[in-house]
């Protein structure tokens, strides 16, 4: 497959991901008669909190994954320190940005309350995303295996 076609395919898949959201937005706006169903301030706050928390949690999971990598590389310390640093930067950035003021606080009174809420929120979102992924990929396989049986190769005579 040529590089141009591959890039084009990725773009088409990205549009396919966004398309349902646009359709819902258009239908919702048409039914309610305005385009302001969502609050941009709240949406930005949620986006920023989700980015910071998922980056930190993702780095933590990948730090655990380094142990599998280390098994095949005589247990080097350099990548381990690199990932620990990445996790610490994530934690520090989260605490610093939440502590800056009301920008990232979502109806929570303190930095600690917001951090704990972010953790819980991200865990629940991860759970929902994982379940949806299993169901979608499972549905795809169910559609593939329940179709008519295909002949892969011509039988030898």
């Amino acid at each position: 497959m040529s590089e141009l076609k591959q890039t084009l395919n990725v773009k088409v898949l990205f549009i396919a991901f966004l398309l349902p959201i646009f359709i819902i937005w258009i239908i919702d706006s048409s039914l309610k008669g305005d385009f302001s169903s969502f609050d941009t301030n709240d949406s930005f706050t949620r986006f920023a909190n989700a980015t910071l928390t998922s980056y930190t949690l993702g780095s933590l999971i990948l730090l655990g994954n380094l142990f599998f990598y280390a098994d095949s590389r005589k247990r080097p310390l350099a990548p381990l320190i690199g990932m620990i640093l990445a996790v610490l930067i994530g934690i520090a950035a989260t605490l610093f940005l939440i502590g800056m003021g009301p920008m990232l606080l979502e109806n929570n009174g303190s930095v600690r309350a917001q951090t704990v809420y972010n953790l819980g929120h991200t865990i629940v979102s991860f759970l929902a995303i994982s379940l949806a992924m299993v169901l979608c990929v499972g549905s795809m396989f169910a559609a593939l295996t329940n179709g008519k049986k295909r002949k892969m190769f011509d039988e030898e005579e």
Partner: peptide, 10 residues
């Protein structure tokens, strides 16, 4: 929706 994009970016 914001949450999903935030998680994808993070």
């Amino acid at each position: 929706v914001s949450d999903l994009f935030g998680i994808l970016v993070g």
